[in-house]
Amino acid sequence: MEANILDNLEVVYQKPETLTDTPFHYCPGCGHGVAHRVIMEVVEELGIQDQTIGVAPVGCSVFAYHYMNVDMQEAAHGRASAAATGIKRVLPDKYVFSYQGDGDLAAIGTAETIHTVNRGENILMVFVNNAIYGMTGGQMAPTSLCGQVTSTSPYGREATQIGFPLKITELIAQLPGAYFVARHAVHTPNAVRKLKKALKSAFEYQKLNKGTCFIEIVSNCPSGWKMNPLDSQKWIEENMFPMYPLGDIKVPGKSTTPSTENN
């Protein structure tokens, strides 16, 4: 590249300073990297790096604290929202978020998830759903689709045997403690833009003390799904979105679940 061309150019996008220089350990094409980056972009843009505490889960993103350049805690499997509750209760003026995968949030940590939102903890819960256990080698997740082949559903998930995909985000939206619930994705530039907007709102809402913000990110797992990254993005659109449609599920001020409005 010619030096004089760069001279006339301005940076319109660069990695946020709220990410460390450590390269992500994720597999090629994995959505976790985008999710991490977008969260940290929001933290940078809101200027709240010094007021933000994150909680990492157990799962592929167990090392989220290697990358996110904010104070962080690594919680036990499924308990990120409990740890985040503990942090928020003693530091009510700080921004607290948890980051969990489907196994962490919707299987082993279901009780903590439901009760954290039901209490309306003023935290942001980020839920990355790729319908598989990536870290342990591609086992069935609570959100795995019917018929989906994993290493523990080798003949495809059979609902009569092992139950249906758990739409925990819809469950969450039923709770009065939930303030803002949305489902987004990271598979296209526009999806990433929408996710970022939602995350920004969610962080800002935290100052209002109105309840829990919960954002599901439908993501991919090329390694677990045994396909290349581009095919995995197609697979998301064709298979994940029919079960996990994108969009707002509960928006402040708009009652999508009238029965839970109690004031």
Binding site: A75, A76, A82, A83, R89
Partner: peptide, 15 residues
């Protein structure tokens, strides 16, 4: 289970 993990979070926050 939740209690002790809340303790983890809150103690980690220095309280």
């Amino acid at each position: 289970v939740a209690s002790i993990n809340m303790i983890y979070g809150a103690a980690g926050a220095g309280a």
